[in-house]
């Protein structure tokens, strides 16, 4: 990661507001701010983990970036393999089609993300077909990619129902990587898999990053996986990034109370470490009706008056370490040790 190199992806003030409609004529009465003013960069070859609980907007954010859904504001600049830059937010869907070879997405559920009525060879080759590449070449490249991700080449004419969850996720990965992209959004790629299969897929994603010089936006709720995979971590809470830091810094010295609680709630597979987690009261509020001020204040044990009225900005508290908390300079928060 060199400092001078342009980031692969540069997201600025990205937002996605879903209109709330009422009545027969669907009058817009409000907005759910699923993603609200989010900014970050991803360097070439970097893995940025996006952590959050359900309703934090992490999946929506990932989908907005690859334009599976259309964001309502902000910028997301992708630097392509040929060095040109393009703003993914302002390009219309039609114009995006040629850009799509530079980015792709891996979904959480390997069962629903593969069309059940297509043989695997066509599924993996679909991004190439969409680029108008000849069938013969598609098949050659599919075989090459399938071998790379560890699929049995004899089974390529079968349908997805003949494959187990782990193999299906390999198919998804092959499909996402076949156009030789620079950037991948991986949305909970191992959450739906069996424990004994997860490691295979995580290793595969790591290998592919090294071989193909990929960058990932790695979306997950599992902090153990994050610690294993990520270079930097962004923590989301109700539509906003509340903390963004290099991984080891974030785990050792979190600067946001939510990150602290999240880290302490991770259950380690170690019966000796039955330490009491910092219990948060309640659950995260609905993004349709977020609390005033800092979204986290109703659950925060350090909350003060200012937190209830003024929304904190994401500001740098240490080099490369940003936190959106009024008290981040004063609090000494508990992290987890990295052996």
């Amino acid at each position: 990661m060199s400092e001078t190199e342009l980031p692969v992806l540069s997201v600025r003030a990205l937002q996605k507001h879903f209109p709330v409609e009422r009545g027969i004529i669907r009058r817009t009465v409000g907005a759910v701010k699923a993603v609200d003013d989010v900014s970050f960069d991803i360097a070439p070859g970097e893995i940025l983990a996006l952590v959050g609980e359900s309703g934090s907007g992490k999946t929506t954010l990932g989908r907005c970036i690859v334009r599976a859904i259309d964001p309502t504001g902000g910028e997301a600049t992708l630097t392509r393999r040929d060095g040109t830059s393009v703003d993914l937010v302002r390009t219309p869907q039609r114009g995006l089609r040629s850009i799509r070879s530079d980015m792709n997405m891996i979904f959480q559920d390997p069962f629903s993300s593969l069309s059940p009525r297509m043989p695997v060879i066509d599924i993996i080759g679909e991004p190439l077909r969409a680029q108008g590449i000849a069938r013969r070449e598609i098949h050659a490249r599919v075989r090459e990619m399938a071998a790379l991700v560890g699929l049995n080449l004899d089974y390529l004419t079968r349908y997805p129902n003949a494959f187990s969850g782990g193999q299906r996720q390999r198919i998804c990965i092959a499909r996402a990587l076949i156009t030789n992209p620079r950037f991948i959004v991986a949305d909970e790629p191992v959450s739906a898999l069996d424990v004994s299969i997860q490691a295979q897929i995580l290793n595969l994603l790591q290998d592919m990053r090294e071989r193909l010089n990929l960058s990932y936006l790695f979306i997950t709720h599992d902090l153990s996986v994050v610690e294993h995979m990520a270079d930097r971590v962004a923590v989301m809470y109700i539509g906003r990034i509340v903390e963004l830091a290099p991984k080891s810094r974030l785990y050792a010295t979190p600067r946001h109370p939510y990150t602290e609680a999240l880290l302490s709630a991770v259950l380690r597979p170690d019966p000796e470490a039955r330490d009491q987690p910092i219990l948060l009261t309640g659950e995260s509020a609905s993004p349709a009706a977020p609390p005033q001020g800092c979204h986290f204040h109703p659950r925060c044990r350090y909350a003060q008056d200012i937190c209830r009225t003024v929304a904190p900005q994401l500001t740098e508290v240490a080099p490369g370490h940003a936190s959106a908390c009024h008290l981040s300079k004063e609090l000494a928060l508990r992290g987890v040790g990295t052996a």
Partner: peptide, 21 residues
Amino acid sequence: RAIPRIGKRSGERLEAIAGNV
């Protein structure tokens, strides 16, 4: 050995179990 866990040396390869269930 296969599960990622906090405190394990990060970046280290997980020792995956081969094959499928």
